[in-house]
Design a protein around this nucleic acid. Structure first.
Lengths: 356, 356
DNA sequence: TTGAAAGCGCTAACAG
DNA sequence: CTGTTAGCGCTTTCAA
């Protein structure tokens, strides 16, 4: 009693806002006439503690009655876990906004969040700040795991390398990095696409791609494109390789640029649907008839692919699965799980490729 | 010393994983030969505590040397703040994935995250689980604020109503709810769009919209559409009001449906760009020539609007600003800030409307 | 100017 | 089966 009064007094003296006191385990314990330990046991459903039904019910009633919700910060302080998964999404530039122009990221994030929720985790999304390493965020928040999407500067990973937090990379091909990863048969996908164009009679095949960073997906797709050409003894024409940003804008801009030159490809494989869409609309704006005047292929099979006319023939990846697998990998035991998982791709035939 | 040994022993006995001990304030204090209180003062740059430069430097050196990062969970336990903002994004259905098919949400989320980061907050995104009220998440995580995007079931808000956490609603018109909100001149925007179509000679104007929930944006836009027709003495034709989902798919499906009937509008105002895009591509697939055979307008001016052919004439909203303002409102003092902020819209004229 | 110590809410070892 | 209690890392009085 003595103690209670003291506490109450303190709260009151702290100002009005503290009046709505947070219900804690102690309150539940008092209400249910048990100790905090017992409450804790019940809440965490510890199988090793044999608590009689009667007590459990009393406690559960008290919890419901008082509207008690455990404080994760306190729990985190004890076991150093947070039930928080950090997700890093590429940005237009460090310190700026996300690259959500590509629907791929939204879908992926959605899948990660969904699967986290099922597993009882929450998702912390944060872009990369200019003056803060992600390690700092990870430590501050005691993140239980990190999923990093896309490629980042080498320095970005450095800090993270010998921190104890499980990390899974999505769409990164940096073999040196000691992280688990989830990726795609990107190279095969690109090869598949290019071969498809070749099978349709095309010989002058362009590649429209994002910046070819050393270990990114774009490079893999580039390599697949090269593979296909080489295997078919088609000479690689550097002029047909267009490197820009992964955006609709770039596709549009590129189309006008290509339209101007005399010697142009008859087909273009874009390493992302967004680029492909830009290309299609751009070419049409120049008055070209698609796919007759220009065949286009994409990669990803986001919902955009069905959005254009002609509908896009593209390489499909299972984005939802990518997120799901990444989380599984993240939460699985070091030992038992493979280091890298590579997902399959599939060619989706629609209308954007013309048979020569 | 005694104490130290004891601690160390404990750590060791707890197994290998604890070997990489977390550096805490105590360690810094020891390293810098000061007390933990002093370290705390320095870290928090408390102006009321006069700490000599020399001490400050010693502490800062120690922090750098040991790579110390404060533990937010511990801090949170003390002051009951988390530096965490919860963001609720609409889902396809409760317990499922986000509605990221509409680029609007991605852009909005991106803006919120960006502004949070600038203000020193992190973003917790979570969908609405079926068996958990958001209040539970909010309490568990001691969220400092919540931004709720879109409309949700009334019951969803109920729990939240008398919790102390600041809440800002984006795109909700529920006046009864005691929350601050950020919205748009949606009704005026829709009216503007419809009037524009009228000014181009259209009289048979359709409306393609998402479900008309009682207090959602879609309803406002519907009302604006009605306003314009009424003011121009154009009879409202219920057959021209198409209610479906806010998606490209719905637009496509709708187009074939409209194509089949004899009596059809000459122009359609879609209450979201995504729908409009679906419509455009759908109609073209039927062989219609746009905009001659059918004029289309959208709403939002997402990047999709420039993606189609003809490019979409639409109502533009400033999504980045919406996120920014929502956060400002959330973090501002109860008293000093207005309850609702309504942002302006603007008509962007492109190519999708035909002058009759 | 600095330090000791209480306490935030929870877990778990240990004692009963 | 249940209770006592020592921390987890930090902030903040209060005292020196």
């Amino acid at each position: 009693m003595e103690e209670l009064d003291l506490q109450l007094l303190k709260r009151l003296s702290k100002g009005r806002k503290k009046l709505t006191k947070r219900i804690n385990m102690k309150d539940i314990a008092k209400e249910a006439h048990v100790s905090v330990a017992t409450v804790s046991y019940v809440i965490n459903k510890r199988p090793d503690q044999k608590i009689p039904m009667e007590t459990v019910e009393r406690i559960e009633t008290a919890i419901k009655k008082l509207g008690y919700v455990p404080n994760l910060a306190a729990r985190s302080l004890v076991d150093n876990k947070s039930k928080l998964i950090g997700v890093v999404i590429p940005q237009t530039e460090p310190g700026k906004q996300f690259m959500f122009h590509n629907p791929f990221y939204g879908e992926l994030l959605s899948s990660i969040e969904y699967n986290c929720r099922i597993e009882g985790y929450h998702v912390l999304i944060s872009g990369t700040d200019v003056n803060e390493s992600y390690l700092e965020i990870a430590k501050k928040r005691s993140l239980d795991g990190i999923i990093i999407v896309g490629m980042h500067k080498q320095s970005y990973y450095n800090d993270l390398i010998d921190c104890q937090i499980p990390i899974v990379l999505i769409d990164s091909y940096c073999k040196e990095l000691p992280f688990k990863s989830v990726s795609l048969r990107d190279r095969e996908g690109a090869k598949l696409a290019t071969n498809y164009l070749i099978s349709k009679g095309h010989r002058k095949i362009g590649l429209a791609t994002g910046i070819l960073t050393k270990e990114g997906v774009t490079r893999e797709r580039y390599l697949g494109y090269i593979d296909a050409l080489e295997e078919n003894n088609i000479e690689i024409n550097e002029d047909f390789i267009y490197e820009g940003t992964v955006s609709n804008n770039y596709g549009q801009a590129l189309s006008t640029q290509i339209f101007k030159v005399d010697e142009r490809p008859t087909a273009i494989f874009a390493s992302a649907d967004v680029i492909a869409i830009g290309l299609i609309n751009g070419f049409k704006k120049q008055g070209m008839i698609l796919p007759k005047d220009m065949s286009i292929m994409g990669f990803d099979d986001t919902w955009l692919a069905k959005t254009c006319d002609p509908q896009l023939t593209t390489i499909k990846q299972d984005v939802a699965k990518k997120g799901e697998v990444a989380l599984k990998l993240l939460l699985s035991n070091e030992e038992e799980s493979p280091k890298n998982i590579v997902l399959e791709i599939e060619l989706i035939e629609r209308e954007s490729v013309y048979q020569i």
